[in-house]
Amino acid sequence: MQPLLIKAILVVIIFVITLLVALYATFAERKVSAIMQDRIGPNRAGPFGLLQPLADGVKMFMKEELIPSLSNKWLFIIGPCIALLTSFMTGVVIPWGGSITIGETTFDLQITDLNIGILYLFGVVSMGVYGIMIGGWASNNKFSLIGAIRASSQMISYEIAMGLAIIALVMTTGTLSLKDIVMQQDAGFANIVYQPVGFLIFLICAFAETNRAPFDMPECETELIGGYHTEYSSLKLGFYLFAEYINMFVSSAVIACFYFGGYNFPFQTELQNWLGFSNNVLSILQVLAMFGKVLFFIFFFMWVRWTIPRFRYDQLMTLGWKILLPLALINIFITGIVMYFSGSIN
């Protein structure tokens, strides 16, 4: 098969999987919250309520679409589009598994392996804030504007700590490519062992970047009605909500790749030698391992949301600037010292 065709098929598959995971994440969120609050949760549509996301989707489509008459129409439409587009674009550099051989061609289960993969991720994530800012401003509504301003200042503040946490990781791995980072963890320990503090900072920042509780300041209902999407209805609101779930999915995948070995699972080479299966089978097992890790982190996101109450805005800024930022700097410093004395740099 043509390499281009294989890539195109891979893109479509990952696109569909991303949509499906995000769709069922909305269902899982309601089920998880129900379990935590000792309720049953949605159980009417289909067996065990499994068709609930479909019902929600149809509801979103059928709702009347309102564009406020005093809003900026073009920007009002562009806002949710940017939000959804950037969240899809982040999935491109994530390695989902090893390589698969069909006939004589071998291809990687990754759309593209950029040697600046981490920087690409960072660039796309920093674009995501425009979706919220433009949408919030174009609504011509005070609550939307305050939500948009909160979102942008929060995302900029936490991007700094996040970047510094990644710098410590890049120091130990010596590469910016996600594929290389994952492949370095195929034997020995995962990066979490070398970078526990960096992982903690990255995890907290991932919550802030995806605007998830306890950092969901931009859509804080008790203060701002709906935050930046107050004026949005129908599918444009759906875009914003969907973008949040896709962001959550991709951040979970990135956390798994950076700190938990990505698609690698413990004793994989031993298992392969013992049972003697082919590389293709190993790759499929690796994809399953990757999705296991990703689904766990999606559950973790929901677990935290329904456990910890929302921060106050000044507490959020204090945490970002006065705790996480110095902690990340100290982490870089200590990583450097340890690397120097252990002789991994000269």
């Binding site: 600046i116 920087l119 690409y120 960072f122 660039g123 920093s126 674009m127 804030v129 425009y130 800012m133 401003w137 301003i149 942008s152 200042s153 900029i156 991007e159």
Partner: peptide, 17 residues
């Protein structure tokens, strides 16, 4: 990449802000 991250991603957000 750095051009996008620094200028488009950070400085212009502050301008817009």
């Amino acid at each position: 990449a750095v051009h996008i991250i620094v200028y488009a991603g950070a400085i212009m957000v502050l301008f817009l802000y």
